[in-house]
Nucleic acid binder design. Sequence first.
DNA 1: CCTTCTCTCTACCATTTGGTAGAGAGGTTT
DNA 2: AAACCTCTCTACCAAATGGTAGAGAGAAGG
Lengths: 200, 200
Amino acid sequence: MNNFVPTRQRVLDAALSAFGTDGYSATSLDALAEQLGVRKQTILYYFPSKQALFDSVIDAAAQDLVELFEQEASRGMTGIDQVEAIVRRIFRLAVNRPELLGLVREVTRPGSITVGRLSAHVGPTVDRARRFLESEMEAGRLRRSDPSMLLLSLYSTVVGVASELEVQRAMGIPPSRRATVVRRAELTRFVRAALAPTDA
Amino acid sequence: MNNFVPTRQRVLDAALSAFGTDGYSATSLDALAEQLGVRKQTILYYFPSKQALFDSVIDAAAQDLVELFEQEASRGMTGIDQVEAIVRRIFRLAVNRPELLGLVREVTRPGSITVGRLSAHVGPTVDRARRFLESEMEAGRLRRSDPSMLLLSLYSTVVGVASELEVQRAMGIPPSRRATVVRRAELTRFVRAALAPTDA
DNA sequence: CCTTCTCTCTACCATTTGGTAGAGAGGTTT
DNA sequence: AAACCTCTCTACCAAATGGTAGAGAGAAGG
């Protein structure tokens, strides 16, 4: 097999990890370069500036997220089952690639200018999710409420529970593999309860 | 009246705002000093290092948060009403002092060493909240589930909805005063639905 | 009046930062 | 073989950063 990964891609990967973990300001090009066993100028050869690198990282991350989401949403599931499938997916993401959700958190920091770049990518997917919620409410499979707001609540809850590891530790929830499963199960119950239609 | 505020306090206030908005790394002592109309060395006179300043900011913020919470929790309310009162309070906080929630977000970043400092302060309050949820479940006023997990879900949902303004913009929710009210109302419904006991 | 304490300042400094300029090595094309 | 292209490097640099040393001003106390 051929394990070669082009330098440009390696830079992107390492940068995503660093930006997503430590944030933009706390990440220096020198540190990034050293980690890659390369000189800073090699990074600047592929990306003309730190900001340009960040932009490219966002583009790549957004593409990953959208792909993941669209894939999970294209299986014809309905109602709460579909929501639950996506929750499951986000948890897998939080375990396997925590830096991706960390990057989202970094980009959506208040006052961020870069947030437009991310929302430009995920906008259509967000729309799709909203339309899904809307039509499922229409069909009586989800509790009726404001779709945008519901989406926001779901986003906050799921991403928070999936990625706020430090908060969890503070709340006495150990970050073990077993605890993650429990966490997801409890979250699913929480979400189900919040979404279930009041079947009268 | 006497509007004088001691320099030390002014530094703390400005630092809380800066750390909470831009993060630790993106905040420079020079910028902070200029904003205060003072020299950097004046800051370093009261706080021996940037990290020490950050620690003090965390202490002050934690004290504020705990005070706020304990106050709201000491009115003898029960069940969902008590939860809703706290949600309301957090929203007021998000409107009036967004940098406080921003600071929490900054401190709870994965890999943060400073997180211990915050949780040391809020630990007892978290315990109190958990015991509250537990006893209310016992009394049949809340849906039965894991109290720690429920607390985490609530935390994520409420703080997220209250402070993720950029995400909201991306989801097509304008950051207007009116929208904030709607947001809180919808969140309350969401939380109520998730917490209501299955009255069988 | 002199000393001492509190507070803010000027003067520096070593290090780190993002970024420029351009050389050199190796491969491909002409 | 000469020219070119791709990629990584060495050599610098100006600005910003956190921090040290210590002077000076003013109030308080002896």
